[in-house]
Design a protein around this nucleic acid. Structure first.
Lengths: 186, 186
DNA sequence: GTCGGATGTAAGCGAGTGCTTACATGGGGG
DNA sequence: CCCCCATGTAAGCACTCGCTTACATCCGAC
């Protein structure tokens, strides 16, 4: 029943491989030959099905940013994101966030998707406080999450890299609660 | 008195150009031809004076990491680093931190220098608390600084990118003080 | 069956990379 | 003065990159 000639499966295999490799290495250090090789298909098919390396990258980011937020209630967003990040082994570099971080080319659709991703997180976080500068506070909390991810994945910084997930989450949520506090409702 | 043939000046021009370009674009997206061109010298001289692109990059990082910490008293380190970071215009992408961040190749001397940089910051910060997990707390504060820099430079995230420096510094230092507190001495 | 389009493959093009090499040149020491 | 070596230059090598092209092969429609 296996169909060796299956365009949909080929497209999906390419997307999976690209997701993994872009996440691990970033855009520049991932080659189309690597992607095709990991997917087990000829690299010309990448161009048949996605047009260009840029377009494939944009597809990866769009797919991930769409799926990233939809499974966490807002109140526990910070806690859940931190736990997920800390529970993965350090320097496991295929977290969606890292794909975005590692790819610092400023043109193309990637920039847009990157910003949208930030906007989504920040909007969710900013709903947690009624302070006047709620959005700025949300940005700061988002920055903390990003920074923790960077220190763990790019730097492999100890002791953070191998720290206990619950400990880190507790420390961060406690400090962040200073920013994300609700005053008494009117 | 101008000496057109001046090896020291040529070396310095190459180092300056490399510092600027690595900081703006990261390692991979900076070519030796770009560096030599900006320095106004023949690109073969880069290899005569530094041996390789990798070695030049390591020299840039070593020079910067040595100069980065030496002008801030420990108590105001967090505040000063934040202020400096926020007072620069957003997306000014030649901050030393960004050079390090943008260059995610894992071998070579760069990795070592990167870690040393983190260690220095974290050691300074960890002296600010006598909690048992002082180093972990320092890592988290360092992560926050890094994350803020990333959101401002890589993402250009609003409102953080154009936020008031004093406001951000106040918010962050207040929240971070939860982590960097001194209990009463013995 | 067979024909045609969908799917897969092999080869390579042109541009750009880090780095090397063979050569010009100029200025200070003998 | 003149020679020698530090300094600078031009050309190109070997390689990888994204992408294209010309061609094989399979499968469903008729």
């Amino acid at each position: 029943m296996s169909r060796p000639r299956d365009a949909a499966a080929t497209k999906a295999a390419l997307l999976d491989a690209a997701t993994k490799l872009f996440g691990e290495r970033g855009f520049d250090r991932t080659t189309v030959r690597d992607i095709a090789s990991l997917a087990g298909v000829n690299q010309a098919l990448l161009f048949r099905y996605y047009g260009s390396k840029d377009a494939l990258f944009a597809t990866v980011l769009a797919t991930q940013s769409r799926a990233l937020l939809e499974d966490s209630p807002v109140e526990h967003l910070l806690r859940n994101v931190l736990l997920r990040m800390m529970e993965e082994k350090p320097r496991r570099e295929d977290h969606p966030l890292y794909a975005v971080l590692r790819s610092s080319h400023h043109d193309s659709a990637a920039e847009v998707v990157r910003r949208q991703l930030g906007e989504e997180y920040a909007r969710a976080l900013s709903s947690l406080t009624d302070a006047e500068d709620a959005e700025l506070r949300a940005d700061l909390v988002l920055a903390w999450v990003v920074g923790i991810g960077v220190l763990r994945s790019v730097f492999g910084k100890q002791p953070l890299a191998d720290a206990d997930a619950a400990t880190v989450t507790a420390l961060v949520t406690r400090a962040a609660s200073v920013l994300l506090e609700h005053t008494e409702p009117g």
